[in-house]
Amino acid sequence: MMEIGLDIATWILLMAGGLLLLITGFGLLRLPDLYTRIHAGGMADTLATFLIFVGLALQSGFSLVTVKLLLVIVFVFFTSPTSSYALAQASFVAGLKPKLGEDDAPQEEPGATERE
């Protein structure tokens, strides 16, 4: 009984994490400019990591593996804001202006931005 409950919880958590990752990838392709894409990338760093690793931790029982999974979560949570801040700050200093305002609905299709 306990086993089945844990399995169902793992299924739900891993599926939710996978769905969130797909949305993240979709957002990376779809959103209009760099600053908005940073938000999409941050989604993979936070909740998707948390969901997938907690789902795996439910399967491992109480062992060193669980501790390692939690350590990876803590590590990603501590480092990911630093790297996204560094990225946003570097591009801001380099003079990249964010698109602001109400009605810049994203019109670009993948493949339409050939600016090599």
Binding site: L28, L34, G41, A44, T49, V72, L87
Partner: peptide
């Protein structure tokens, strides 16, 4: 940014 995202996803 996408290299960073790929790295996080590789960890997963």
């Amino acid at each position: 940014l996408s290299v960073n995202a790929i790295g996080t996803k590789t960890v997963l």
